[in-house]
Amino acid sequence: MIKSIKSNLNQFIIGNDDKIELSMAAIIAGGSILLEDQPGTGKTTFAKLIANSLGLDFKRIQFTSDMLPSDINGFVKYINNEPNFQKGPIFSNIILADELNRGNPKCQSAFMEAMEEKSVTIDGSTHNLPQPFFVIATQNPTEQVGTYPLPESQLDRFMISFSMNKLNHDQEKEILKQKNNSQNINSLNIDIQKTMNEVNQIECNDIVISYIQSLTEQTKKIKFETILSTRTLLYTVQISKALAYLNEKKYVTFDEVQKTFPYILKHRIKNVDFGVDILGYIQKEIIEKVPVPR
Results as ranks from 00 to 15, higher is better:
Ile95Met: 11
Val257Phe: 09
Ile13Phe: 02
Leu176Val: 12
Gly55Ile: 06
Asp98Met: 03
Lys194Ala: 13
Asn247Trp: 05
Phe274Met: 11
Pro105Lys: 01
Val257Arg: 01
Phe63Trp: 03
Ala25Thr: 03
Asp255Asn: 15
Glu117Tyr: 07
Tyr245Cys: 05
Glu256Leu: 08
Leu246Thr: 04
Glu225Trp: 10
Ala26Met: 03
Ser187Met: 15
Ile209Arg: 10
Lys177Thr: 14
Thr44Glu: 08
Lys77Cys: 13
Ala242Arg: 02
Gly124Pro: 07
Ser153Lys: 08
Gln178Val: 10
Leu246His: 05
Pro130Met: 07
Gln171Trp: 03
Met112Ser: 12
Thr232Asn: 04
Ile239Asp: 01
Ile94Tyr: 03
Ala137Asp: 00
Gly275Tyr: 14
Thr121Arg: 11
Arg231Gly: 03
Lys173Gln: 10
Leu34Asp: 00
Leu265His: 04
Phe158Arg: 00
Asn93Ala: 08
Asp273Arg: 10
Asn10Phe: 13
Leu215Thr: 02
Asn205Gly: 07
Leu215Val: 07
Gln38Thr: 15
Gln213Arg: 14
Lys179Ile: 13
Ile192Gly: 05
Glu285Thr: 15
Val290Gly: 05
Thr142Leu: 09
Ser32Glu: 01
Lys266Ile: 09
Thr195Gln: 10
Asn104Phe: 00
Ile222Leu: 04
Ser210Val: 08
Gln154Met: 08
Lys59Ala: 10
Ser119Ala: 14
Phe63Lys: 00
Glu21Asn: 08
Lys249Ala: 11
Asn104Val: 00
Met1Glu: 08
Glu82Asp: 14
Thr226Ser: 09
Thr44Ala: 06
Lys177Gln: 13
